[in-house]
């Protein structure tokens, strides 16, 4: 900001001084937050370091982790990262398509189409995700439909997220003002042209950031498909080696770190994307 730059040889104006003071407060707060995070992390590390110490005459010891186990199994568990990202990406792709169709269908004046969409959303939102996952893995085979693990997981997660995400696209569609429709129609566009050329591009743009959030949520919810044993993603791998050697603590901590790092990375990516999209906006 230009007001922050003092002209050489001239005393600072009042607005410059106020601006600088505000900036100082902001900077100090940020530094305080960063320092606190580092301290919290250090405490967490200390808690799991297995250190012995005495406090008020008591002999104390923090939690001990088996580093040999960690060394042996970290790569196996890490292999699940790609499966987690893969199933999440496939599922979010399916969910996006379903959500868009459901949102568009709700605009239909044709009762059957409108009803299919509301029925789908109601059914999925009215039942637990955990149940839906087991439905695809365990109930469908009873009917002779055996889907490969990855596909069963993708269908379950995609269907579920699609129902919730239809709200995002609905909001996206209604974020485009009535004036846009009228301008398109007045220029002679057909309803289809109006939708594909004018409404959807604006609605989708509106929907990109929340879809990113859903992807990040999906990364974590994909852990639920591990329960079926057919998709070898992070959580499945962690529980497998953890149970086998009775080192669930270490195994879950490794998995937790991977989830956390993934979430942080994708969130950072997400905010950059959001910042880029909001540039050149109204």
């Amino acid at each position: 900001m230009s007001t922050a730059l003092p002209t050489p040889g001239q005393p600072k104006t009042q607005s410059q001084l106020i601006f600088e003071a505000q900036e100082r407060v902001k900077r100090n707060f940020q530094m305080g937050v960063t320092a606190s995070w580092i301290i919290l992390l250090a405490i967490l590390l200390f808690l799991f370091s297995g250190t012995k110490f005495t406090l008020g005459g008591f002999e104390l010891k923090t939690i001990h982790l088996d580093t040999a186990f960690i060394g042996e199994n970290a790569t196996f568990i890490a292999g699940g990262v790609w499966e987690t990202i893969g199933i999440s990406a496939l599922s979010i792709a399916l969910a996006t398509i379903l959500a868009l169709l459901a949102a568009l269908g709700r605009l239909s004046p044709f009762p059957p189409i409108y009803s299919v969409c509301t029925f789908y959303v109601s059914l999925i939102r009215g039942t637990p995700l955990y149940l839906q996952i087991f439905f695809f893995f365990l109930a469908l085979p009873q009917l002779g439909i055996v889907l490969p693990g990855l596909w069963a997981g993708t269908f379950a997660l995609g269907l579920n997220y699609g129902a919730y995400m239809s709200e995002i696209f609905r909001a996206g569609l209604s974020s485009v003002g009535k004036g846009q429709r009228e301008a398109a129609l007045a220029l002679g566009m057909t309803p289809t042209q109006m939708m594909t050329r004018i409404i959807l591009p604006q609605a989708l743009r509106f929907a990109i950031p929340p879809t990113g959030n859903e992807f990040i949520a999906m990364l974590k919810d994909s852990a639920l498909v591990s329960a079926t044993g057919f998709v070898h993603e992070l959580m499945w791998r962690a529980t497998k080696v953890g149970r086998a050697k009775f080192h669930n603590l270490e195994a879950l901590i490794i998995a937790a770190i991977f989830y956390w790092v993934m979430t942080l990375l994708f969130s950072a990516l997400q905010s950059r994307l959001e910042a880029r999209l909001s540039r050149g906006e109204r």
Binding site: G177, G179, Q180, E182, A183, I198, P201, Q202, E281, R282
Partner: peptide
Amino acid sequence: MVFQEFNLFPH
């Protein structure tokens, strides 16, 4: 038609 609120396509 020209509208009061312009209604240009922002994208």
